[in-house]
């Protein structure tokens, strides 16, 4: 599934990135490397962007960017 599909409160682990070039580098810089645990913290009042907990930081990503990250849902 895509990263934006995880619901608020749910966890997932990064499998791969579909991005190229600059966007890929930006996502990698945020720590979204395969194997990273991410959590959907909340969605913006208007539904997008979504706030994710990534390696101890809180990062807001739009649907477009979070759609480039393939993840596996993880129950915790």
């Amino acid at each position: 599934m895509k990263m934006f599909e995880i619901q608020p409160g749910e966890y997932a682990r990064v499998r791969s990135l579909e991005a190229e070039g600059n966007i890929r580098r930006r996502l990698l810089d945020l720590g979204l490397v395969p194997g990273t645990l991410v959590q959907n913290i909340r969605r913006s009042p208007l539904g997008d962007p979504t706030l994710y907990a990534i390696r101890g930081a809180m990062i807001a990503l739009r649907k477009e960017e979070a759609g480039l990250v393939n993840v596996d849902k993880e129950e915790r």
Partner: peptide
């Protein structure tokens, strides 16, 4: 088209 959006929300 809108470019990429990443925004860190600090504690």
């Amino acid at each position: 088209i809108p470019s990429t959006f990443t925004l860190e929300i600090p504690p």
